[in-house]
């Protein structure tokens, strides 16, 4: 088993469908098809958020969910765009990486792209390239 690493990233539109999925390491694949998996992840996030709101009215923009072997990091922008990243437990600095992905990769290359249609799957090759660059240059990626 390898050490620190970043497994995958989901990007969800405010309305709940997945507009981007990117994968770097994934030893285990879900038994369901990708479309159902995205719905399941989004359902989990929505429930976790309402769970948070009940336990504490001051709802945070960021939270993380850990299992024995991986951690799911969740970042939501004020416009309800959701970034979800799975990493190894030892990974650090992901709380700063997700906002960085939003500010330095998503905003210039998706929002700033007049050809990108809002709410649809991100088709831009430049976005994908820039995203891989920023993730693979992170200290927790190995």
């Amino acid at each position: 088993m390898r050490g620190m690493t970043i497994y995958n990233l989901y990007i969800f539109h405010p309305q709940g469908h997945c507009i981007g999925y990117y994968e770097w390491h994934r030893p285990k694949r879900a038994s369901i098809n990708p479309a159902e998996e995205f719905q399941l992840v989004h359902g989990l996030l929505t429930s976790v958020r309402s769970f948070n709101e009940k336990l504490s009215p001051l709802g945070p923009r960021q939270c993380s969910v850990s299992t024995m072997k991986n951690r799911l990091h969740y970042f939501e922008t004020a416009t309800s765009l959701k970034f979800v990243m799975n990493t190894d437990l030892a990974a650090f600095g992901i709380e700063e990486l997700l906002p960085k992905i939003y500010e330095q990769v998503y905003v210039p290359y998706v929002t700033g792209n007049p050809l990108a249609i809002k709410g649809e799957l991100i088709q831009s090759e430049v976005f994908k390239q820039k995203l891989s660059d920023i993730v693979q240059s992170h200290a927790s990626f190995a």
């Binding site: 030893p27 998996e37 024995m68």
Partner: peptide
């Protein structure tokens, strides 16, 4: 179920 690693609980 959604974990990218096997046997993560």
């Amino acid at each position: 179920q959604l974990s990218p690693v096997p046997n993560s609980g």
